[in-house]
Design a binder for these strands. Structure first.
Lengths: 333, 333
DNA sequence: GTGAAAGCGCTAACAA
DNA sequence: TTGTTAGCGCTTTCAC
């Protein structure tokens, strides 16, 4: 049976208050007494009862992390680095899967998180539902862009998607591409659309004619992008070399498959670029040129901001942090 | 400020005991009273204080999941399905990353998990350290094979690696391969070695001469396997067609790169098979033939067994469950 | 510098 | 059927 401070107190002939004082380290206790108490705790294998402490001081030492899909390489990378940082503190992570569904996010935020978590990290939540978190005054950090003004205690950390996509555009231009396609996700995929905007703006600002840029929205997976590009390649004229920018690596994988099927060579006949830099993208043949979503920094920063918010109280932590994205040039452009 | 049962009781003119009774649903309460109480709870947005409940009934409603690496496609797949099952119960998941390091596993099991978790799911832990969990009588399920007898309350669920590897061997034989290589992980990678055994046994039992099978242990990643196979391909004679079985998909990716570099065609000149069936393996060109590690079933089963253990008490749940692995035939053999 | 005691919100045994 | 009450393990005033 597990020992409590009472047991320690009895064995050491002190009061439970004194034992508590050495545990919390908030009041001075005579060194020799302190030592004796610590030895007894060690001896009995004492570990504080978190439930009791939580009840008393009204903290749970848990941080909720809401992820759309642990299975997505980017999400899991972010999660990994959140975990790394958090596990060095006294906090622990409670994991929630939102499936990318607003209802699930809402449900999680609403009912589940009331007393059971001291803070909440939302990974790329569906935009509209952010507002949910405003109801509860629990420190929140969102990995993603702010969507509407709020006075709730929310911080945001996100990657500079706009600029990243611009770098892709510049690369295409440098290499002499003349005709462009941008494939974005579903209409409401916010980050994908920032990338589309960045790509578009950079191209247009550099003298590309609007009719030389076509944009599409599609299901953002392998098959969706594959069949879209198959269609685009009807009557393809390689003399006006096409550069296809797909706003996510996994989609780019599908897109890259299409030219291969048609006997077109990447990057000689056509260019493909992605966004994210999945771990696996280096293995695509040819290696996928892409913009690196800074998953590691995203996770670490979000976790650190969270810890700060909890420690310093409302309003003291950064409101918004935007992280640079880096061009990863391999062989597909 | 958050309402408590006291508030509900006062507003409803009943005692806190009655309120508690409608919450826990363990004693009969007059329907009209019950309704009134429930309405009040709804109205005030009451949510039970988990810390208090935990303290009282000595349960945390948390399940610890210890994962070597969330970033690994197999692990994250398992985790996803654990989460799916657990989230349908009243339990929640606390996530721990072990980095595949025994020390970390031990540390997690030892200090952290005492009172803060009702059960523990360990995903492919390093064998020796399993014993740790025996000290605490907390329900444990291990995704992986039992290594030593113990009377602790541990259940095991794992895939039939031996048989899966055997299926790969049979496929090679069927297709007329005559020379074989098996690449396993580091010496102490238990599952990898089961696969090696299964492959070896099946081959030898079917008349393959020992000198026609070479086995290797290596760092189990892309680069390790790549350079190993590059070496193996010195003076390669395609007339005695070689079948290479790599005990994990990610290694197989590396292995498959080597023949390509040397101008050898897969599967015409040489065959490559993997094990696991990562989500990404279908995208390798040619598509990787592999044995499917049943990640979904592994996760779901482990979670269900856990829930049973917690509900039914010690010893009532299955001790050991082994799951079938299925051959996924694509184009690399 | 140390101890006594109240009380965090809840459950369950017992009384009514 | 409902209410009273003790107590889970801990922190924290407030006395001493």
């Amino acid at each position: 049976v597990r020992p409590t401070i009472k047991d320690i107190a009895r064995m050491t002939d002190v009061s439970i208050a004194t034992v508590s004082n050495v545990i919390t380290n908030k009041k001075y206790v005579r060194p020799e007494l302190k030592k004796k108490i610590q030895e007894t705790m060690e001896y009995l294998g004492y570990e504080p009862n978190m439930a009791a402490r939580s009840l008393k001081i009204n903290k749970t030492f848990k941080i909720g992390v809401v992820i759309p899909d642990v299975t997505d390489p980017l999400c899991s990378e972010i999660l990994k680095h959140i975990e790394k940082i958090i596990s060095m503190s006294e906090y622990q992570i409670i994991l929630y899967n939102s499936d990318g569904k607003p209802e699930k996010e809402q449900q999680i935020s609403e009912s589940v998180l009331l007393g059971i978590v001291d803070g909440l990290i939302l990974v790329s939540p569906r935009t509209e539902e952010l507002l949910m978190s405003c109801d509860y005054q629990i420190p929140t950090v969102v990995i993603g862009k702010p969507v509407s003004e709020t006075d709730a205690d929310i911080s945001y950390v996100y990657a500079d998607n706009f600029n990243g996509a611009g770098q892709i555009a510049s690369l295409f231009l440098e290499k002499g591409y003349q005709n462009f396609v941008c494939i974005s996700g579903p209409d409401d995929a916010q980050t994908a659309n920032e990338r589309l905007d960045g790509f578009q703006r950079a191209l247009l600002n550099n003298g590309v004619e609007p009719e030389d840029l076509k944009t599409y929205h599609t299901r953002f997976d392998f098959d969706g992008c594959y069949s879209l590009v198959i269609d685009l390649l009807e009557n393809y004229d390689p003399s006006r070399k096409k550069g296809i920018f797909v706003c996510s690596d996994i989609g780019a994988w599908g897109a890259a498959e299409a030219p291969k099927k048609k006997g077109l060579k990447i990057p000689n006949d056509i260019g493909i670029a992605g966004f994210d830099d999945n771990y696996y993208s280096r293995f695509l043949c040819p290696g996928l040129t892409t913009a690196q979503n800074p998953a590691k920094e995203l996770g670490e920063t979000a976790a650190n901001v969270m810890l700060n918010k909890i420690k310093c109280g409302e309003g003291k932590a950064d409101k918004t942090i935007v992280l640079d994205v880096k061009l990863i040039e391999r062989e597909s452009v």
